[in-house]
Nucleic acid binder design. Structure first.
Lengths: 143, 143
DNA sequence: CTGCTAATTGATAATCGTTTTCAGTTGGAC
DNA sequence: GTCCAACTGAAAACGATTATCAATTAGCAG
């Protein structure tokens, strides 16, 4: 279940943070997107509607939302972190360490493990990353 | 099964790469370590024995070994990638998006999934990352 | 062993993403 | 409306990584 914009703004208020137009814009963008977004990509999308928002503010907002657990920060292979609203439609990655090719896959249910971990650790778990790293068939042939 | 230094040097030769003392040193360091190492950490360790090796060379060697599939590059939460010899003793992480605390856990067997993926994709799978992201109990209480 | 050549190296500079600093602005409680 | 802490954007600082380039060297041919 994706977080709604409403839920997020309520959470912000509850923790004493102000609800600025800039934050609204970043939240809208994250919630509306199906993809994992890098900070630069969020900035690009936000800028279309709000040209005078600063990249710095995007970084700050992402950091805040992530800290409050309203969005998730993931590190999937590339050099930049990516963000997504909590509990998105989920898929996993198979990454080639040779050429960087990424293949998506689905169909593995981690819910039982997630429940066990939540119970044992006290964490409120929002998301997970499952990546396999290997060498794709093309790269196995290359010298 | 960890890769031996011998196996790695043989692979290098096979692909037409030269076996320099600098590469030897980096390989030794990676193979000898149980931990995930950042490039900076590899450089630090290598420098003890070989003070005149350059950080740039460490980066290049890590990139080469990773491309050949002899070591794995992982992205576990932090800002830097980390490297490890293929198929190390493996554990997984539970990461708090609030404070960054990392809790290790073990006991989930991904081998069946790994086999299925290798069969379906043609990848030679070397490693995997399984991370759960959430908010730890302490951060759930903080505003 | 000697010489050759392409691969490799280290130092420097450039680049990229991110964070800090700071002076000016603003949301929202009163 | 007034006020103040929270927030903002621009610029500078920062750390990790990559590109450039002249000098060195591994490994092969003779």
């Amino acid at each position: 279940m994706k977080l709604t914009e409403r839920k997020i703004t309520t959470e912000l208020r509850k923790h004493g943070y102000k609800l600025t137009p800039q934050r609204q814009a970043v939240i809208d963008t994250i919630v509306a997107s199906q993809d994992l977004l890098t900070p630069a990509r969020v900035y690009e999308k936000v800028s279309r509607e709000h040209p005078d928002i600063g990249l710095v503010t995007v970084y700050r907002t992402l950091e805040l939302l992530s800290r409050l657990g309203l969005i998730c920060e993931l590190h999937s292979g590339g050099t930049c972190p990516t963000y997504t609203a909590s509990n998105p439609e989920h898929h996993h990655h198979l990454i080639c360490s040779g050429c960087g090719k990424v293949v998506d896959f689905t169909g593995h249910n981690l819910a039982p493990l997630e429940n066990r971990l939540a119970r044992e650790s006290g964490f409120r778990i929002q998301n997970h990353v499952l990546e396999f790293i290997g060498v794709c068939s093309a790269c196995q042939e290359t010298k």
